[in-house]
């Protein structure tokens, strides 16, 4: 009797219109919204991942990993931890969002997170190899994409701790002097403890990366490594001379026309 009551109550509630069946479109909309959200988070993770790779390669921070344990520790501390934190937060959000799908909840959360991290690192690295970030950076240099400017300016200012890249200007008995992004001349002391590639002897005009603490414009090098000659050693943004900047500014066609008009008038 009680069971019959339950069925009758339910059917009465439905027939009276007290409850309405959600339409298929409602669920399609929800699914679409969920997919859009997930896609957006995946793209954001890929963007941040590739940006970190771009940032560290711009500042040559990867070079640190070639100087042993101390170098790796220095590399880890020089990582952009705020951006990395935001990325990890998004990875956590994504892992939580996909938990409603069988492909995710059938696996332990750690497995889902490991897959997301692997895809983010691989995808981020792949995106960083394209000209995507360089193009955005170029747009920012010409005054476009102002919203992204603070992030990319941060990338340009990123300076890995204890890593100095420069060009050797003079060789001495105890080492050499080199010209870096920040210093016109800095003395590098090379000792027996300095790690360097076997059979490498520094020579003038060599592009080189030096790992070691700077004190009184001297670096007691813990490691030195030659850099490929093709690789550009950029000047920091605040040290670019006005004359250098002028080279990058394209002349305005209107200005050229006005100038030509003025010359014709004088003639």
């Amino acid at each position: 009797m009680k069971n019959k009551d339950l069925k009758n109550n339910i059917m009465k509630t439905i027939k009276d219109g007290d409850v309405q069946m959600h339409s298929k479109q409602f669920f399609l909309g929800k699914a679409l919204l969920s997919i859009v959200g997930i896609t957006f988070i995946i793209l954001a993770i890929l963007f941040l991942g590739s940006f970190i790779v771009f940032m560290t390669s711009q500042s040559s921070a990867w070079e640190l990993t070639k100087f042993g344990t101390a170098g790796i520790i220095s590399f880890i501390t020089s990582l952009p931890w705020i951006i990395l934190g935001v990325g990890l937060l998004l990875i956590g959000m994504l892992a939580k969002l996909i938990q409603k799908y069988p492909f995710a909840y059938h696996k332990p959360i750690v497995a889902s997170i490991a897959i997301i991290v692997a895809v983010s690192v691989g995808g981020g690295y792949a995106v960083a190899q394209t000209s995507f970030h360089k193009n955005i950076n170029n747009h920012i240099e010409t005054g476009k994409l102002k919203a992204a400017a603070p992030l990319y300016k941060r990338a340009q200012k990123h300076n890995p701790k204890n890593l100095h890249a420069g060009i050797i200007s003079e060789i001495f008995e105890d080492g050499f002097t080199m010209k870096t992004r920040q210093y016109d001349s800095i003395h590098v002391i090379v000792s027996d403890d300095t790690k360097k590639p076997p059979q490498y002897e520094p020579a003038t005009e060599d592009k080189i990366s030096v790992f070691g603490k700077i004190k009184n414009e001297k670096i007691h090098a813990r490691g030195i490594k030659p850099i490929s000659k093709k690789r550009e050693i950029k000047k920091p943004r605040n040290q670019v001379k006005a004359s250098d900047k002028r080279e990058h500014i394209k002349p305005n066609p209107q200005d050229i026309r006005k100038k030509q008009h003025r010359i014709r008038k004088i003639r």
Binding site: N9, I10, T13, I14, V19, Q20, M21, H22, K24, F27
Partner: peptide, 15 residues
């Protein structure tokens, strides 16, 4: 709760 379950099943049956 049993009744709630069936009502929810009805409203979400399209899903």
């Amino acid at each position: 709760t049993v009744q709630d379950v069936f009502i929810k099943a009805y409203t979400n049956i399209q899903n």
